[in-house]
Simulated scan of single mutants.
Amino acid sequence: MTGNRWSDLDRPPLNADALRHALLRPGGLWTAVDVVEATGSTNSDLVERAAAGADEGAVLVAEEQTAGRGRLERSWTAPARSGLFFSVLLRPGAGVPVERWGWLPLLAGVAAATALARSAGVDTGLKWPNDLLVTVKGEERKAGGILAERAGADGSAVVLGMGINVTLHEDELPVPTAGSLVLAGARGTDRDPLLRALLRSLEQWYGDWRRAGGDAAASGLLPAYAAGCATLGRTVRAELPGGAQVSGEAVAVDGDGRLVLATADGVQQPVGAGDIVHLR
């Protein structure tokens, strides 16, 4: 039908049956894959399911989010079927101490960067703690973000959400600093194989991390994150909860996933939460 926003041939819908066939297997992490045309927020929906006792491994994908959320209550909007907008439900269990759960958004970043390099040929950098960066016309731009939320009636679950701009063109970008895979020269923008690659990569990294008891160094996550982190070695400003700020060189990510800043007065200060601004 002419004018139907779901009939854009350049942005075909995801094939839910094919995704289930490819991803659901005995002994695997993923236990359910649901694709909906539109919802407010896949994270909010899965948080509700977690509270109702949903199993680990539930995946919810939306062709369009009308109230997508990022960190610090920021909104995330994009045209229908122009990207990948999905959330997964994880239950790390007693084998992983809660203090190590802060690694999950960083783990998701490594999984995404690994998958996008292999499946789309796009070099993806990681801005601490949860942004995915690509290069467009020689400029570093944000093409995706990650949001982790505690969930479940007893707080025993984590809902991990990811939004990635795939086919957004320049005139569709929400801000000039945004980017997309197609603008970064992706060799393929078919969202079905991209999503399969992302979820398989996430399953692998999560499995390794959980088998190591959440030890980021032993699982290989810490060195992988450090190698791909575009924040390290940069002078940055950390805008902390409550309004405080601290500036310095980002010199390391510690064992708890915190960004370590070397300040001008010689102090090495770990930052566990906040907004990071790359100064140069």
Rank of each mutant, 00 (worst) to 15 (best):
D34Q: 15
R71E: 09
L90Y: 10
S82H: 09
G125C: 05
N130Y: 01
T31E: 03
S82N: 07
V158M: 13
E37F: 11
A94H: 03
A112I: 03
K142T: 14
V136Y: 12
V110R: 02
T31N: 02
R71C: 07
V88M: 08
E56A: 11
G57Y: 07
W76F: 08
R49V: 12
I146D: 14
G121Q: 05
E37D: 15
A148Q: 08
N165L: 13
A51L: 10
A94R: 06
E99S: 07
A94Y: 00
L29A: 02
M162C: 10
A153I: 08
G27L: 01
T135Y: 11
V88F: 10
G40T: 09
T124P: 04
T124A: 07
G40M: 06
G93T: 00
S82T: 06
A62I: 03
E63N: 09
W76Y: 08
N43M: 06
G27V: 00
L160W: 10
S41M: 09
G40V: 06
G70T: 04
A78V: 11
A51S: 07
D34W: 14
A157S: 08
A108G: 09
D154K: 10
R25V: 04
A58K: 14
A108D: 05
A52C: 04
I164N: 05
A62E: 00
A80K: 05
G27Q: 02
V35E: 13
V98A: 13
G125L: 07
S87N: 07
G70S: 04
G102S: 05
W30I: 02
A108S: 06
L106Q: 06
L106I: 09
G68I: 04
D154H: 09
R74G: 10
W128C: 13
V158S: 12
A115G: 08
L133I: 15
L72M: 14
E99W: 09
R118S: 04
R74Y: 01
K137E: 15
G27T: 00
P105W: 03
R49A: 14
V35M: 10
V88C: 11
E73H: 08
M162D: 05
